[in-house]
Simulated assay, not measured.
Amino acid sequence: MAATKALDFYLPDELNASHPPEKRGLRRDHVRMMVLDRSMGDVRHDCFFHLADYLESGDLVILNNSRTIPAVLYAEWYRNTVQLAPKVEIRLARRRGEDTWDALVVASPVMTGDSLHLSPELSATVLGEKENSPLKLIQFSKKGADLFNIIYALGEPVRYEYIEQPWDLDFYQTVFASHPGSVEMPSAGRAFSWELLFNLKRNDIQVDYIRLHTGLSYLLDDQWIQTPEENEEEYHISDGTMARIIETKAAGKRVIAVGTTVVRALETAAKNGALSGMTNLYINQHYPLKIADGIITGLHEPKASHLDMLSAFVSEHHLLKAYGQAIDTGYLWHEFGDMNLIL
């Protein structure tokens, strides 16, 4: 299902954040924050470090602790023993097993049986193709932690056209990231610092973590637009975290999801009862949210499916009006940009 046409708007190029806040002279927790009231549509403007001022004692903030991997790799491309290209780009899309990944191999036409030599220690074989998709299933010669170690040594972060220069992987990590697997940074958590997390706890605001490994969102060709239903992502919620969620809601307090990834994981678990697995849940204005009472997120580009999800929290009218204010007052978009709290 395509993103709602109503959620289209003009975003000036200069509002695409091309530099991390730290390179703009800001601490990561001092980006701007637009606070949007779900029911009335009222908007306030503040600094993200003041987040605790908008939450209440007993509220529960849920973060995604997936760690970003450097998912862009380069390899020599072989068919049988013949080298077809000395350097092709591979973009990992999502993990399928200990040694298998869906990947975008930027070379045409890559065929089943072709081999990709990434380094003396690592190679991969193309096992097959995905229907109606440019993605291939590839199997690496290493698996588990050994594979991740080499990927971290060889790879670089996924970078889109509004990021004008390469930044080190550290800029694409949240401070609390602990489980490698996200192809793109779960960026809503980027603005949190340890000081801010401590400040929340000091105000009796609970903090807990789930895990959802983000997939590759853009396949480098507008011919291939992935719908949320096609973008399967792996998630895990612990028994203890779910127990805290249930206790929080039973006490009449709010569960605040940090990012669309957290909403997707929580609402999948509420829908199917499974605390771990794969999700392709699509959430829009018609979806009845069961767990998330609010969301902390970045600012999303025109027609993005993430905007559909936000319309489950707040009306499209209020959302577009708030986005208009954000544009007029110079908020910055994307993973290095400013934040939006919807409560």
Results as ranks from 00 to 15, higher is better:
A243C: 08
F140V: 11
I246K: 15
K143W: 04
D239G: 09
E233K: 06
N149G: 06
D239Y: 13
F176H: 09
I150R: 13
Y160G: 01
F148W: 14
A188F: 06
Y235M: 08
D168P: 00
D222C: 07
S178C: 12
A251K: 14
S141H: 12
L219R: 08
T174W: 01
T214N: 10
P180I: 02
G155I: 03
L220S: 14
G144P: 07
H236N: 06
D170E: 12
S217A: 10
K253Y: 04
F198P: 01
I151A: 00
L212V: 02
M242T: 05
G189V: 01
R159C: 06
S187H: 02
E234W: 03
Q139K: 15
F140W: 15
G252L: 05
Y160N: 01
Q139Y: 05
P186T: 01
E156K: 02
P180R: 02
M242I: 09
K143H: 09
E156N: 03
Q165V: 09
F140L: 11
G189Y: 00
T241D: 07
Y172S: 00
F148R: 14
G240E: 13
L135M: 10
E230V: 04
R159Y: 06
E229Q: 14
I245V: 11
G240H: 14
S187K: 02
R202V: 07
I205K: 15
K249H: 04
H213Q: 09
V183P: 00
P166F: 12
D239I: 15
K142V: 09
L154A: 05
I225N: 12
I163C: 07
G189R: 00
L196E: 02
K143L: 07
V207E: 06
S238Q: 03
L219Y: 05
L200K: 15
I205E: 12
Q226H: 10
R202M: 12
N231H: 12
W167P: 00
I210H: 00
I210G: 00
G181H: 03
L200E: 08
A251F: 10
F192C: 02
R159L: 08
T174Q: 02
N203M: 13
I163Y: 03
S217P: 05
G155Y: 04
E229S: 14
F148G: 03
F171L: 08
A177H: 01
A243P: 04
A251S: 12
E184A: 06
P180G: 01
T248M: 06
S187Y: 00
I163T: 02
T241C: 13
V183C: 04
P166A: 04
D239T: 13
E164H: 14
D170H: 08
F176M: 06
L154G: 02
L154T: 04
W224H: 15
S193L: 01
Y160F: 10
I246Y: 10
L200C: 11
I163F: 04
E234L: 06
S238V: 10
E230C: 06
I151H: 00
Q165R: 11
A243L: 11
D208N: 14
R202Y: 08
T241L: 11
P228S: 06
D168G: 02
L154P: 03
